[in-house]
Amino acid sequence: MAELLIEDLTVTYPTATGPVDVVKSLSLHMGAERIGIVGESGSGKSMTARAVLGLVRSPGKTTARHMVYDGIDLTRQDSAGWRGIRGRRIGMVLQDPKFSLNPVLRIGKQIAEAGLLHGVFKSGQARARVLEMLETVGVDQPGRVYDAYPHQLSGGIGQRVMIAAMMIAEPGLLIADEPTSALDVMVRGQVLEMMDREIRKRGMGLLMISHDLKMVAHFCDRVLVMYRGQVLESCAAKDLFQSQHPYTRGLLNCLPTGQNPGQALPTIDRKLIQETAAHHVQ
């Protein structure tokens, strides 16, 4: 079974006031399970996902003691090496289908691209494989969507298309970076359930990046909580709501639920979190 092993992953950016670690010595070991990374903006969760696929652009620098997926050393890949990994071994779904799909290519062609590039199927089989995949991701009229352009699709269908394009080359690990935050609330649940079903069926691993603790707890087995580049807490998803960590508690408590309408919501004491974070590193 394919495993992802990360030890001491650090992503550094130079700034006017010296280098800043946007991800600080992150370690993670996962198999075919569903891991969630949660945190607020700037916590380094998306940067972690990008680093795994070698997508941190200069002047950012990625360093790691080990970063290995299924025996492939991810710290020493050239662009040819990455081409064989991205899409084929590790797929990635981004937040907004509007910006991730090519606006001037028909959907069918875009989905087939990854499969053809990696030699998963021949061009003669492409149409049948793509239509089958569109049906799998819950598209009602695969034929119509196959011939459509991205602007003719709704956000929900667009994101299903993105997931289809990522699954067609049969990667073993899917990284989903806020896969549903650009979608309407009503469509969100449906897309997540479809993604979850397919990942379980294919025995894939999932690395889900999100700011939504409740959603992640619902769809993942294990959760990492990040703050300012560091993992503050790692726990089983079912224990997340019992977490005693002040930052995780703060994130959970500050969500309005309507239980105490009109009362001041608890806010996060950032000074306290800074102190705990510093303590955590030592």
């Binding site: 700011h211 500050c254 919501l265």
Partner: peptide
Amino acid sequence: LDASIQAE
């Protein structure tokens, strides 16, 4: 906004 900023 982030959840903690939303609360504020």
